[in-house]
Amino acid sequence: MVRLQNKAQEIRRKTFEAIYNAGGGHYGGSLSAIEILTALHFDIMKLKQGEPEWPERDRFILAKGHAGPPLYVILSKLGYIDPARLAELDQDGGSLPKHVDRLKVQGIEYSSGPLGQGISVACGMASAARLDQNNCYVYVLMGDGELDEGQVWEAAMTASHYRLDHLIAFVDRNRNQIDGTTEDIMALEPLADKWSAFGWHVQTIDGHDTEAILSAVAAAKKATGKPSVIIANTVKGKGVSFMENEYKWHSGQITPEQYTQGVADLEGVSKQ
């Protein structure tokens, strides 16, 4: 478990660096999702190193498509993309757009960005897999602000109606969206009750604790006959002192001094 936590922290550092080198971007929601993405790709999901198209792989949809940078770092470690491409993030003519793009990046299952659609796509994938008796799991990671989109709740009904128990959704519950906190802009609470009412198996965990993430997925797989959602309480901008829990760091640019501060913050955590 220490291995996964360390790996997550390394991915967090590289994500911070990649976004800074790109000239700015979605720091907040990228840094909050690191442990979820790391646990999924380096432990939970059935994947093959270097073979992004392996038919029996578990599927992952990054519904909050703006968190592309950490996923790209992970894909480079899985041998799906050349690590040198990280320097192309958001560059003119580059091959790594911040919103994930399946046609440009090997290992991306679905090009997202417009919020609310990823969970519907995941429902379609899970339904198709069941039809083919493919036992794979479909994972989807949504932002909490994304839950404002009505389509999420259309899909929540669909998943429940069709008893898609191989669909496991994560909500990156960092409690901040572009214009403010989620509870100020469009209150989500009582969030767990909402998902329960829609017929889902619901768990709420510390989204920065890889052990908790693994346990929650194991429990989700045991909840047969219904889809599962894991509400992962996270910190937006996690690990960078001046970004943590500041909604304004949903996206933005930082100064060289702030970058130095961020690197020191992240290295400090690593040394602890």
Partner: peptide, 8 residues
């Protein structure tokens, strides 16, 4: 979107 997932 569900159809997109089926096609995927």
């Amino acid at each position: 979107s569900f159809s997109a997932g089926l096609a995927a």
